[in-house]
Amino acid sequence: MTIVSRLRAAAVAATLAATGFHAIAAEPAGAKPSVVIVHGAFADGSDWARVIPLLQAKGIKVTAVQNPLTSLADDAAAARRAIDSQPGKVVLVGHSWGGTVITQAGQHDKVASLVYVAAFAPDAGKSTAETGEGYPAAPGSKRFVADREGFLSLPEAAMREDFAQDVPAAQAALMTATQGPIQSKAFSEKVSVSAWKTRPSWFIVSAQDRMIDPGLLRAMAKKIGAKTTELAASHVPQQSRPAEVAAVILEAVAATK
């Protein structure tokens, strides 16, 4: 097929999608659910590079969403597009800010269960910022650097000391280079639904978290009635304890009928 032919085919596909026609692959009987992973702030999809192969080795289809990190609405839309493309049921995973995103986007009909990894789980009508009220500000949250347009990032020292203090320095440096800055206003945007109210949930609490107070993580896990696993890990257990994180996701997959 020539480049021109491919472009024409892509244009036709886009037109069909816009008019409501979708080619959806049928889910084979007894197929495992897919896993869709939503990364948090100060990261991108590569943040899950150590967990994804462990899931794929079990024959699971995995999609890591690339959040624009421009707003809750934009990130939720990106998650929904990824969910739409799956052939059947989905286990939706969110880390940190990604927990807010899956709380909103997880109301999708294909989503069977939710996995929160050191993540926010707001109630309907609440924002990420409001969810943390009444708990101490975590050390790392005081080290954000804002640009002229209000996008927040973490300097390398904060990444190394507060975000991922239990990974090698070279790994933290790579995480600094690949991080996705987040629009600060996103933390004040309220979710309109709470998918955890209608979906079974799993929750990983990072006991050494310096980005979200561990007490807040425990309280959120209890509030949403999640099956909870606590790890002696930083804010990024998917980087420092990938096998344990994968095990929790696999448990959610196995529980999906």
Rank of each mutant, 00 (worst) to 15 (best):
V91N: 00
A119F: 04
T131H: 06
T128P: 08
G106K: 05
A105D: 08
S96Y: 02
I83E: 07
A121C: 11
V91C: 04
V90H: 01
D109C: 00
A137C: 05
L92A: 07
T128G: 06
H108I: 09
F120E: 06
I102Y: 06
A138N: 12
E130T: 06
G98T: 04
T103H: 09
K110P: 11
V91L: 05
G88C: 10
I102S: 04
Q104T: 06
V101F: 02
V91D: 01
S85R: 14
G88R: 07
D109K: 15
A118R: 07
P136S: 03
P122K: 01
K89R: 15
S127W: 00
G98C: 05
A129Q: 14
L114D: 09
G94H: 07
I102A: 05
D109T: 15
D109M: 08
G132L: 14
G88V: 13
Y135H: 13
H108E: 13
A138P: 12
A129G: 10
Q107R: 13
V101M: 06
Y116G: 02
D84N: 15
V115S: 01
V90R: 02
A118P: 10
H108W: 09
T128S: 14
Y116C: 03
S96Q: 05
G125A: 10
P87V: 13
V111C: 05
V117P: 03
A112T: 04
A129P: 10
V117W: 08
S96I: 00
V90P: 04
H108F: 08
Y116Q: 08
F120P: 04
A124P: 09
A119V: 01
G106H: 03
G106E: 02
E130R: 10
E130K: 11
A138L: 11
S113E: 10
G99V: 00
G106C: 07
R81N: 15
L92N: 07
S85D: 15
A112Y: 01
A137F: 13
A121T: 01
T128M: 14
A138I: 11
Q107P: 00
G98Q: 07
T131C: 08
K89G: 13
V117K: 06
V115P: 00
T131L: 11
A137H: 14
A138K: 12
G99T: 01
E133H: 13
W97G: 07
A121S: 12
G132S: 14
Q86V: 12
P136I: 06
G98D: 05
G98H: 08
V117M: 12
A118E: 11
K89D: 13
K126H: 14
I83V: 15
K89H: 13
P136E: 05
V93Q: 04
P136A: 02
H95P: 11
